[in-house]
Design a binder for these strands. Structure first.
Lengths: 227, 227
DNA sequence: CCCAAATCCTGACGAATGTCAGCCCGCGTA
DNA sequence: TACGCGGGCTGACATTCGTCAGGATTTGGG
């Protein structure tokens, strides 16, 4: 039974997603989709709980109910699972990026858009955020590169949006650091929720959004001084 | 050759550090110390590069020059190495905490102290920060608990210092979220340095310190309004 | 009810892992 | 020079890992 054909077929360096192996054994598309869903869901929970490297294929099979042999009819290997998860959760989430939201709602203030963004991101991208920050060392170098490309693009986009509001050139390092901080703040809720679980979500959101808005205002101020 | 006696001997739940196994085979204390240094140094670099779980004892031996058998005369097991690293880098670093520095320099402004703190933390605790955030899933539950205790204590301490400056009660959730954000920001430099490596350190420091100070000021402001 | 195609699963492979028993060597002392 | 002992090391153990060949089983059309 000749199974899949391994990893990277499309080495497009600017690809927006990670390449997923194609498998040819099972033919029923909807079955493939269903099984992959089971597998990825189980894998995600295990990766978050025990980390990528110490989650075994056997664990994933047990949790998802897919047989140890059959699993290779649906995914190419363990790393392929990680790639598919990152594609779903990081590269293609149903949450627009912050700069997109800023552009979509030009009438709303920065702080209000930020609040909406954080609310959505913390709700829908929580697991993806955790997975990304934790599994960087286990990604293939090629995939890490793709992630960095994506991250840099987002950073540039946000820097652009920010530059206008702050009155600094887009490529000013201070603008870039600020954009970086804001992106980092997206991970705040997910990564430190073990210590903030007894705080009401909306309170946390308010404090973070207000804080970040104040950071940005402060940068604008100091840009005005030396501009 | 009866080697060490495994893991947790001192189950003190409020212990300030993680318990390290005692080994009884090698007797020369300074030799033990020297070898442990080699081992931990090599392990740290490997853990950061490939992650804890996919670093093997053989890797560590190769990199540190210690024999595969002898290594168990100096450490109890792989997890013991992680514990020792966390003790060195996280529980006992030669960097005072932020609230300590605030208390030690009451004449200096918040922003200036913050800048000093971040400078030191990013220089001396960088690797520890990375190690902690990445190896949480591989720690024993007991150790994770100890970390959380420590983290909570730091959080409470910082909340206390902050409360005065902000005019909110120490236990106000907003104060706690703010303290949490500041602690999180300590990880900003290390965790996102792959994207900020071409930014000068001092610029980054300025932007972050100014930003955080602005966040705190903003919180004080809104506390004044509803106080 | 039968047969072929599609899907599932038993069982196993080679490689890698954490761990260590037990032998080895060299050095200081008698 | 002989001996004892602290420390190093070869080689191997039991286990677990990712992976899959190939037979068993189900499914659907005639």
């Amino acid at each position: 039974m000749a199974r899949g054909q391994g990893d990277g077929e499309t080495p497009d360096p600017a690809a927006a997603t990670l390449s997923e192996a194609e498998l040819t054994v099972v033919q029923n598309e909807s079955l493939i989709h269903r099984r992959r869903e089971q597998i990825c869901q189980a894998a995600l929970e295990l990766f978050l709980e025990k980390g990528f490297a110490s989650t075994t294929i056997r664990d994933i099979c047990a949790k998802s109910g897919v047989n140890q042999a059959s699993i290779y009819d649906y995914i190419a290997n363990k790393n392929d699972i990680l790639r598919r998860l990152l594609n779903q959760l990081w590269f293609n989430p149903d949450v627009p990026t912050l700069p997109e939201m800023l552009r979509a709602a030009p009438e709303a203030g920065f702080e209000e858009v930020l609040r909406r963004y954080l609310r959505e991101a913390w709700e829908k991208k929580r697991k993806g955020t955790l997975l990304v920050y934790r599994s960087v060392p286990h990604m293939l170098e090629e995939d890490r590169r793709a992630m960095r490309v994506r991250d840099k693009a987002l950073l540039a986009d946000l820097s652009g949006e920010l530059a206008e509001r702050v009155g600094l050139p887009e490529r000013d390092p201070r603008t870039e650091v600020m954009a970086n901080m804001i992106i980092f703040m997206t991970a705040f809720g997910p990564m430190r929720d073990w210590l903030t679980r007894d705080v009401e979500d909306e309170v946390m959101l308010d404090v973070v959004a207000a804080g970040v808005a104040a950071m940005v205002a402060r940068l604008a101020e100091s840009a005005g001084e030396d501009g």
